[in-house]
């Protein structure tokens, strides 16, 4: 589904990605983890063609991201960026409806409206639907933006730190929805997560990055070992098992 071949990226003389290759098959949830500055967000924005490729090649569903028309790619992948300072005076419903733009080009059909309504309901936004985005709290705004990405209804969904600003309830809720999107509808979800335990609990696969390279890659059970985590994050982390799932005690 997503194929990344020998991608390198530098900005202002600093190497951010060094020869990254990855293959993510269709369906399933992949979590990208790693310390600050590992190149996770850059990799995600390269997949989402928000930045031009410098070296290497990326295809999503067979479409090369640097040569496929943007409008066509927007039906294949949706991307949510981390720093979405939407200060716009748009109503939540209007914002979410723009997620349908790749399909409707602005003329909403009844099907589009149904998608919008479903997304609003799914992320508990019904009560805010007619409020302006700029009047929402950080967490509510984040949910509105996630709803917009969901509303785009693409086979592939890229999320950069989607749990930012979310409270525990909504963080868990979002992770379950991502899981369900993969299980029930065969979506390919790639999310940069900073909490390794969210990754371990909900992802099929964890890709760990450090200094612009992929340093570990595998299912949670395989990756969640003190040795691997120390290699990635630089300090010894105890790992225990609760209900058959590995849990890292990284805060201790």
């Amino acid at each position: 589904m997503i194929r990344i071949e020998n991608v390198s990226f530098a900005r202002g003389g600093t190497e951010i990605l060094r020869d990254v290759s990855l293959e993510l098959p269709s369906g399933g949830v992949t979590a990208i983890v790693g310390p600050n500055g590992a190149g996770k967000s850059t990799l995600l924005s390269l997949i989402g063609r928000l930045q031009p490729l410098q070296a290497g090649r990326i295809t999503v569903g067979g479409h090369a991201v640097d040569s496929t028309p943007g409008a066509e790619l927007a039906k294949v992948l949706a991307i949510l960026r981390q720093d979405n300072g939407v200060a716009s005076r748009l109503r939540v419903r209007e914002l979410v409806a723009f997620g349908r733009f790749p399909h409707s080009r602005g003329r909403l059909s009844n099907e589009d409206r149904a998608h919008v309504a479903a997304s609003l309901a799914a992320f508990g936004l019904d009560a805010f639907a007619e409020r302006f985005v700029e009047t929402l709290s950080g967490g509510q705004r984040q949910r509105a933006l996630i709803a917009m990405a969901f509303c785009q209804d693409t086979p592939c969904l890229l999320l950069d730190e989607p749990l930012n600003n979310l409270d525990m309830f909504h963080a868990r809720d979002l992770m379950r929805r991502l899981r369900a999107a993969a299980d029930e509808r065969g979506r390919t979800v790639v999310a940069v997560l900073h909490d390794i335990n969210h990754a371990a609990a909900y992802a099929d696969r964890i890709v760990a990055m450090k200094d612009g390279r992929v340093v570990a890659d595998g299912p949670p059970a395989e990756l969640m070992t003190p040795e691997t985590l120390e290699r990635v994050f630089g300090h010894r982390i105890r790992v225990t098992t609760i209900d058959g799932r590995p849990v890292a005690l990284h805060h201790l």
Partner: peptide, 18 residues
């Protein structure tokens, strides 16, 4: 519609295929 999306910034615009 496209101008409104433009006002949401470059990333969102490209993400929506503009």
């Amino acid at each position: 519609d496209r101008l409104t999306i433009l006002s949401l910034g470059r990333d969102v615009s490209i993400g929506l295929g503009l």
